[in-house]
Amino acid sequence: MKLKIHGGVGEKGRTCIGIEAGGTRLLLDVGVDTSAQGGPGYYPVITPDELERLDAIIVTHAHEDHVAALGWCCANGFSGRVLMTAETAAETDATLSAYATKREQTLARRIRPEIIGPGQAFALGPIGIRTGRSGHVVGGVWCHLQADGRSLGYCGDVVPASPVFAMDPLPPCDLLLVDASYGADRVPAAERGGAITHWLAAHPQGAVLPTPLSGRSIELIGLIGTPLAIHPAMRPGLAQQVAAASWLRPGIADLLSARLAEAMLWQEGEPLPPAALLCDDGMGLAGPSRAALAQAARDGHPILLTGHVPTGSPAAVQLAAGKADWLRFPTHPTLPENAAIAAASGAGRILAHSCDAETARSLAADIPGLAADLRPGDVIEV
């Protein structure tokens, strides 16, 4: 079994991992790099010939750095099978509307994805595949692949200790790709959450919190104890996630439903509410967060950023200007959590995705077997 890096290893964003075994070729995720929007580094590093020869694409979840290049793949030669969970399929078009061209979105809409579920085992040619809940979003899965007597674990994006989403343990594997989005961060999730609740309590006039619709928004709803507000367009998607109880930790759905029912509604053109206003996306590049961030900056209204802030995004501009604060909300593993995942896998070789090479090198002391100097275009044997 061979692995080829098309994006996301040695860099942040455009996660895309190629797998080949016994003549079957597939991709794990097809993301974009939002920091390179409009530039040559936006899409995965993969040729039209490689796309034409692909048998399938497996999408782990519907965030832009994992799915937004799906239509681009179709535009450049891909015509194979697409596999994802029903929840990911339901959210993909909204992601492409924000991060893909109209033509790419149109091509992606023609796809009839094959629906997979957590815990499901299936095969693509000689490659046996298992999935499990990732703990990152409703519909998010990790993947375990086996062929030629060797096995590979691909975390996608995972959260081992989410207070809202459930994560299933990964099976043992020979090579493991860990979600290193947070690099060497060792701060426990409870401490991160406490810092956010303290910040919100200190801003009773309310604040704008740009956040992705899927995943982090639901976790913030569970965390926030102050008055809450959302954009009306978010309510159906949030309600759908809360209703997907099989992806959630036991007992959390009732709390989330009650908080969502209490939430104020805000939309463009209205005064910003005296509440924690959740608005997607998390960077101000698309959705209602674009208008909310601009209005908050004009009005001197507090802004709290809680996730990745791509270079050049409206969120980054406000942060650089001193008009926003940033407190990381835990939606990826800390270094100790990644070390534990790696140790439990028994893998002799580890790759770190969603981080640059320098960050990967900083992890090697705590994660034995981590290969830190790989980049897009590199091919390795599993």
Rank of each mutant, 00 (worst) to 15 (best):
G237Y: 13
G237T: 13
L238M: 11
L238D: 06
A239V: 00
A239T: 07
Q240F: 01
Q240N: 01
Q240E: 13
Q241A: 14
V242K: 03
V242A: 11
V242S: 04
V242G: 03
A244E: 05
A244C: 07
A244H: 04
A244L: 08
A245S: 13
A245L: 06
A245M: 04
A245D: 05
A245Q: 15
S246F: 10
S246K: 09
W247Y: 14
W247K: 13
W247T: 14
L248P: 10
L248C: 01
L248Y: 02
L248V: 13
L248D: 02
R249L: 06
P250K: 05
G251L: 02
G251E: 14
G251V: 11
G251M: 02
I252E: 03
I252D: 02
I252P: 03
I252Q: 10
A253Y: 05
A253N: 01
A253I: 03
D254F: 08
D254Q: 11
L255Q: 12
L255N: 14
L256R: 04
L256V: 00
L256A: 03
S257C: 03
S257K: 12
S257Y: 07
A258P: 00
A258G: 04
A258H: 10
R259M: 00
R259T: 07
A261Q: 03
A261I: 11
A261E: 13
A261S: 12
E262I: 05
E262N: 11
E262Q: 15
A263F: 05
A263E: 10
A263S: 06
M264G: 14
M264Q: 15
L265H: 04
L265I: 12
W266D: 09
W266F: 04
Q267D: 14
Q267E: 14
E268I: 10
E268G: 08
E268N: 10
E270S: 11
E270M: 14
P271M: 01
P271E: 05
L272M: 12
L272T: 00
L272I: 10
P273Q: 09
P273D: 11
P274F: 01
P274I: 04
A275N: 03
A275M: 06
A276W: 02
A276N: 07
L277E: 09
L277M: 05
L277C: 04
L277D: 04
L278T: 11
L278W: 13
L278C: 05
C279R: 04
C279T: 06
D280P: 11
D280A: 13
D280I: 00
D281H: 02
D281F: 06
D281C: 12
D281Y: 05
D281G: 05
G282H: 06
G282T: 08
M283S: 15
M283Y: 15
G284Y: 00
G284L: 06
G284W: 02
G284E: 12
G284D: 11
L285M: 08
A286W: 13
A286Y: 09
A286M: 11
A286H: 09
A286F: 06
P288S: 04
P288E: 01
P288R: 02
P288Q: 03
P288D: 06
P288W: 01
S289D: 14
S289W: 12
S289Y: 12
R290H: 14
A291F: 01
A291E: 12
A292L: 03
A292E: 11
L293S: 14
L293C: 07
L293W: 11
